[in-house]
């Protein structure tokens, strides 16, 4: 009889001792994953979007996961990659927020500090060769200055007016570079929403791990606002004309 094998997320997997060489081995792959995050600067602040799907390989396993998170009053964090690692990070960031609140001295952690803190965690974990399998997009207004930064499992970080993770880096980023780059102080909210939806629609059409139930969020001088899930209008008529590959 075949034994049933259950694969645990790598973070909770016991560190197996290899009988052959005695070396410690770790599972080095994400298990339950979220796909792209798309974000860019516009006139009033930063827009961000991510769908609500958590995939288990190619299985659409959980369909209403939240991948956008507020840290403090004016920082927005989006995540792609392993969602159990993200939940760990959520706890870390909530602890950070609580510690800051308990200082009770009217000083708050700015977006840049949250970004630095997340970056340190990511870089330190990569240095232990036990990474958190995520990409983080951190957005906010820090001292009235728009901030949009990225950090991944290598601890690689950069700031840019437009950021897209995962498949978004290939499918959404070209759209953002065309429609946003150089205009990030001009784009009104209405246009920003249109750009965001266009990016997410393209991703839904082409990324097989995406989902047409998504949240968008904005961070402005008024703070962070994360929407309820919504769907995009799509049109699959073109599918009729596709011949071959099962068409």
């Amino acid at each position: 009889m075949d034994a049933i094998k259950i694969q645990l997320p790598h973070t909770v997997q016991p560190r197996a001792e290899n009988a052959n060489d005695g070396a410690v081995s770790r599972t080095m792959q994400p298990i339950v994953t979220g796909t792209s995050v798309v974000a860019f600067k516009y006139k009033d602040g930063i827009m961000m979007a991510a769908d609500t799907l958590a995939s288990y390989g190619s299985l659409a396993r959980f369909r209403s996961e939240k991948r956008l998170m507020a840290v403090g009053d004016n920082t927005l964090v989006g995540v792609s990659g392993d969602l159990s690692d993200f939940q760990y990070m959520q706890h870390v960031l909530e602890d950070l927020e609580t510690r800051e609140l308990c200082m009770d001295d009217d000083q708050t952690l700015g977006t840049k500090s949250v970004y630095k803190y997340i970056s340190n965690i990511m870089y330190n974990r990569r240095t232990k060769v036990d990474p958190l399998w995520n990409s983080y997009v951190v957005a906010g207004l820090d001292h009235d200055e728009k901030f949009l930064g990225f950090v991944d499992l290598y601890g690689t970080r950069y700031q840019s007016p437009t950021i897209a993770t995962g498949f978004g880096a290939h499918l959404a980023q070209p759209i953002l570079r065309k429609r946003v780059e150089g205009r990030e102080d001009e784009i009104e909210e209405e246009e920003a929403l249109a750009i965001l939806d266009d990016c997410m629609r393209v991703l839904f059409y082409r990324d097989a791990r995406s989902f047409n139930k998504l949240r968008r969020a904005k961070v402005t001088a008024q703070g962070v606002e994360i929407s309820e899930p919504y769907s995009l209008e799509t049109n699959w008529d073109f599918a009729e004309s596709i011949v071959g590959y099962g068409g």
């Binding site: 200082m103 001295d105 952690l109 840049k112 630095k116």
Partner: peptide, 12 residues
Amino acid sequence: KMVYGRPLPVGR
């Protein structure tokens, strides 16, 4: 500076 990238608040 290392952990939070900000100057230590004076009161703290």
